[in-house]
């Protein structure tokens, strides 16, 4: 047991009103977990709470790493970023690489090299000088994964990384995430509606429903009854 993230009776919500209450679970180092549940159940709230984007109303979240020195890698949905910014793929990744550079200090050669290396890790070296907004949905998502990797994080958190991309791009994204977890031992937590993806690649599932969250293995948590109950009859069919 080597916990990387531990939630103790955590309450999360907005403007003092809890959406989730009494949430407790542990994420082990090297684990690949998915946050799953019906729409509006509180997946995003839990995700944002873990990232520190919303305050914890009660309980506590313990990180098995120094959040200031090594922040988690955050991969938002590509739609949340405005295409008006004139940035190349490399410049987007450089934002992650420059995370630990103090204000007023220039981004040094090592950080620039790290950004290029992270782009290579997601297979996008050739797109480094392409405008970020001109990339395909799948490529944008991989650039954002590269940006998260450039932070050199102990934990990678991804918000619906395969939303709105075609099957080919989806396979490329999943391949990158699986390699990072399997080959590099990076702990991954993913928010997804993609049941086939979750069944195939994720070892554990945090099921968010009725203002609470329960963790178990993928096999336990993705029972036909639970899926039919949450998503309707189509979700319970064998994939």
């Amino acid at each position: 047991m080597d916990p990387l993230l531990r939630l103790w009776g955590v309450s999360l919500g907005y403007k003092g009103r809890p959406v989730l209450d009494g949430v407790s679970f542990v994420i082990e180092r090297g684990e690949f977990a998915a946050l799953l549940g019906p729409n509006g159940a509180g997946k995003t709230t839990l995700f944002r709470g873990i990232l520190g984007l919303i305050p914890v109303l009660a309980g506590r979240i313990e990180y098995g790493f120094d959040r200031r020195a090594t922040p988690p890698g955050y991969v938002p949905q590509k739609e949340s970023l405005d295409p008006i910014f004139p940035l190349t793929a490399y410049e987007v990744v450089l934002m992650g690489a420059a995370a630990r550079v103090l204000p007023l200090w220039p981004v040094g050669r090592r950080r620039r090299h790290l950004a290029a290396e992270c782009l290579a890790r997601v297979g996008l070296s050739d797109a480094a000088e392409e405008p970020f907004w001109a990339l395909s949905g799948g490529q944008k998502q991989r650039v954002l994964i590269a940006r998260a990797l450039a932070v050199e994080p102990p934990l990678l958190l991804l918000d619906e990384p395969t939303a709105g991309v075609d099957p080919g791009a989806e396979a490329a994204i999943i391949d990158v995430i699986m390699r990072l977890n399997r080959d590099e031992g990076l702990t991954v937590v993913i928010v997804s509606h993609h049941l086939r993806l979750v069944r195939e690649v994720v070892r554990s599932v945090i099921w968010v429903e009725e203002a609470s969250a329960t963790k178990g293995t993928a096999a336990e948590m993705l029972s036909t009854e639970r899926l039919v109950d949450a998503f309707g009859t189509a979700a319970g069919r064998p994939l």
């Binding site: 984007l53 955050y74 949340s80 940035l87 934002m95 992650g96 550079v101 204000p103």
Partner: peptide
């Protein structure tokens, strides 16, 4: 000029900036 990387990060992706501390 001196603070361009901070201004760019909070303008482009405020959530990312907060996550990075």
């Amino acid at each position: 000029f001196a603070l361009r990387k901070e201004f760019l990060l909070v303008s482009f992706d405020r959530d990312m900036a907060v996550v990075l501390g």
